[in-house]
């Protein structure tokens, strides 16, 4: 392989990696927000992404929605489901040992996966084509319209999220609760409402990722959320858990690394490399790339 084709291939993997990475980033945002606000690794978050993909699927096949309405429908549906899960399964356990709520999250995750299998059958479904696929060729590198859509939608959602968190009253409340729940409560913030809202937003973002993945890979199934869910958590840790820019950065980096590993080495090691990155970042900089270190007071 000569050097110019190597560069082209590298660029190609970069494009693929950024597309994949922006999907990780969307899921990671929810992970990081939920962890930031109630210190829970919400194992069910990957399954919300699956639910979102199915909501998008049914919106387009049964209700004949076009892309944008289907995306909004899916985000709304997943948002509601996320809020219901928080209300029913997590809120009663807020003062219980941390491990109990984690086990509950595992329970919810299994429930969504196997409930999904029962409800929509374990067979993978083909996601309908929502718009004409066009392929653009840039100096030997190929980028298709799905990838463009993924990038545009993800960026747009991230901008909206950043605006909501930084500029709105609810966003301020979210940051206050995540900084110090008790103090926020004393300041008159309705903590329950804020946590519920966080689950809603996080779930909606995951659902958007689900629809985008459906468009990208054309195939969805009830267990599709397990691996991306874990990977997105890796991305959140990589960027610094609790940090929104961190989740975006972590997702993108992870996506790029995975694409490069599959492109230049072997796709069977792709998942192992993701976890190896996780371990390295945890040992080297446990607070993540953009996180802050906190030490226990003696």
């Amino acid at each position: 392989m000569d050097s110019s084709s190597l560069i082209v291939q590298f660029g190609q993997q970069l494009i693929n990696g950024i597309s994949l990475g922006s999907i990780y980033a969307l899921i990671a945002l929810g992970y990081t927000m939920i962890y930031g606000i109630i210190r829970l690794i919400n194992f069910a978050h990957g399954d919300i992404y699956m639910v979102g993909a199915y909501a998008g699927f049914f919106a387009t096949t049964m209700f004949k929605f076009s892309f944008i309405p289907a995306l909004i429908f899916s985000m709304a549906a997943a948002g509601v489901i996320g809020m219901v899960i928080e209300r029913v399964a997590y809120r009663p356990l807020r003062n219980a040992p941390k491990i109990a709520i984690l086990i509950t999250a595992i329970g919810v995750s299994l429930f969504l996966e196997y409930g999904g299998m029962l409800l929509v059958s374990p067979q993978p479904r083909t996601f309908p084509v929502l718009f004409e696929s066009e392929v653009y060729n840039i100096g030997g590198m190929v980028i298709n319209s799905q990838q463009v859509v993924i990038l545009v939608v993800s960026l747009l959602l991230m901008v909206i999220l950043t605006y909501v968190v930084n500029k709105t009253k609810m966003g301020k409340a979210m940051r206050a609760v995540s900084f110090d729940t008790e103090a926020a409560q004393l300041m008159g913030i309705d903590v329950d409402k804020v946590i519920s809202f966080t689950f809603g937003i996080g779930s909606a973002l995951a659902a958007a990722a689900g629809v985008l993945v459906g468009i990208y890979y054309n195939s969805i199934d009830p267990l599709m959320g397990i691996m991306p869910g874990l990977k997105a958590f890796v991305a959140a840790v990589l960027g610094g858990i609790g940090s929104l820019p961190g989740a975006m950065l972590g997702g993108t980096i992870l996506g790029i690394i995975e694409a490069l590993v599959s492109g230049f080495w072997s796709s069977t090691f792709r998942d192992a490399v993701a976890f190896a990155i996780l371990i390295i970042i945890l040992l080297w900089k446990p607070a993540g790339l953009l996180g802050k270190n906190i030490r226990e007071k003696v």
Binding site: P92, L93, A96, G107, S109, L110, F111, Y114
Partner: peptide, 21 residues
């Protein structure tokens, strides 16, 4: 088989809700 994991997961959630320790 199709109900197994659903019942299992519900049992987990309910047990944790009522007896987290």
């Amino acid at each position: 088989p199709e109900w197994r994991m659903i019942i299992y997961s519900l049992m987990l959630i309910i047990l944790m809700l009522y007896r987290p320790q």
